[in-house]
Design a protein around this nucleic acid. Structure first.
Lengths: 238, 238
DNA sequence: GACCCGATGTAAGTGCCATTTACATCGGAA
DNA sequence: TTCCGATGTAAATGGCACTTACATCGGGTC
């Protein structure tokens, strides 16, 4: 595909098999974003430098400024892409509430952690780079779209309850988001600086969600008990 | 108090009312930590620089290296103090389970958010500076002590249930920690870059904890319903 | 087909920062 | 009194973000 050549940084003006190129890069913007992702994955969003990205792309340290106002603008663009990818993953996991809203909701939670685990560079840029969402409308919009998935799923799940015992869907989505984000931030990152757990983050989140949903009355307590810790809610010898 | 003079940077060898001091500072280590806190509060842990801290303390930019191996070591010391303060707050909030374990547990949750709100500099250093807990035994120990409070409270609360319906206390404490941290990270920081909420973070956390504890069976569902959203669980027109 | 212009890239410079090294100063112990 | 270890300074190194002036390219204009 044409994009592959461009991303790799060897474009139309490129020369033979030595991988050289002419005066102009051809798709520096894209190459910088890819370089940023690799560098963030390697050294975290704080360790990423504009100069490093330029070196990775094989251009001078001033070239990136033709495509991004400053370092934060590049970081914000990475974060925006991350949120768009994130929203796509969540949408796929929700799958229009199939096979049933409850299972689909669990899938969304799993997708949240899977994204944090599988795309640590995006996740870092999105949540740990300290970017201001206010200053970048596109970034905010992408983040909103991600949250909207969670909110929609919450609404569908809440709607299954009779109105008089129906919790506010927005509140529910905020709780689920906070729990997911908290688990991802505290326990689910591969950087090793975190705490050892008696169970996998995915199990921890699934158990937490089950308990929470039971508390809401969205699902029933396991048979023979109105408490937890016995069946599905993850009491695997913790 | 003697500490005040030392912290302010005017020590025994200081001169008259002009606030001068001699060649040596007197308590540079403490002054640097205080300067770091002020700078982190102002510009975040990423914006804090060693050179700035030195300027604030009125010493040359090389002086801090007599007290901290590098910038991260100072940051880690701030984080360690933060965790110790944090643990103290949590212990006070728990108050040995008074007036009753359930109320005390809620107080711990409130104390968590209050700390994040009232001590943003410490909180940033503790959770957002990207420090490796492995490389600093004292830091890890202080963090462990904070978590131990939460875990102990969870154990007391779990112990009130009959053994066959008793959830694993460690899991419960991890859930509460994650929920608290998630809410604090996503919604409770004053930096304005966050999302507007239909309710205060404290209310959001309290509601979430109530729902979660109800799901565990630690507390009963509100009268007349096995669901939520009607009474205490914060359905304030969200 | 020659020319021109806007987009894109380079080189060099500024100012800040982290960190190191050699040297200066101080208070207290011998 | 002398000496030493702790603490502070000045200066240097190398890196980074960002700016400015200049270079190169390709595509559109005539």
């Amino acid at each position: 595909m044409w994009i592959d050549e461009l991303v790799a940084g060897m474009s139309w003006s490129g020369r033979g098999p030595d991988g050289r190129r002419g005066y102009h890069h051809g798709n520096l913007r894209e190459a910088l974003i890819q370089a940023a992702l690799a560098l963030i994955a390697e050294k975290g969003p704080a360790g990423f430098t504009f100069a490093d990205a330029a070196r990775s792309a094989g251009v001078s340290s001033a070239a990136p400024y033709r495509h991004f106002r400053d370092r934060d603008a590049l970081l914000a663009d990475v974060a925006r892409r991350g949120f768009e990818l994130f929203a796509d993953h969540l949408v796929r996991a929700w799958d229009d509430g199939r096979p049933d809203p409850f299972t689909a909701f669990e899938n969304v939670g799993r997708a949240y952690l899977a994204f944090a685990r599988d795309e640590p560079a995006y996740y870092s840029a999105m949540f740990e780079a300290g970017l201001s969402f206010d200053s970048d409308a596109a970034l905010r919009q992408a983040a909103d779209r991600s949250f909207a998935v969670l909110r929609h799923a919450s609404e569908v799940l809440c709607a299954r309850l009779p109105p008089e015992k129906r919790p506010p869907a927005l509140m529910m989505s905020l709780h689920v988001w906070a729990l997911s984000h908290g688990i991802a931030s505290l326990f689910s990152r591969g950087d090793g600086g975190r705490r050892r757990l008696p169970m996998a983050p995915e199990e921890l989140l699934e158990a937490g969600m089950l308990i929470y949903l039971r508390g809401l009355g969205v699902i029933a307590a396991p048979a023979g008990s109105e408490s937890a810790g016995s069946k599905s809610a993850g009491s695997k010898s913790v």
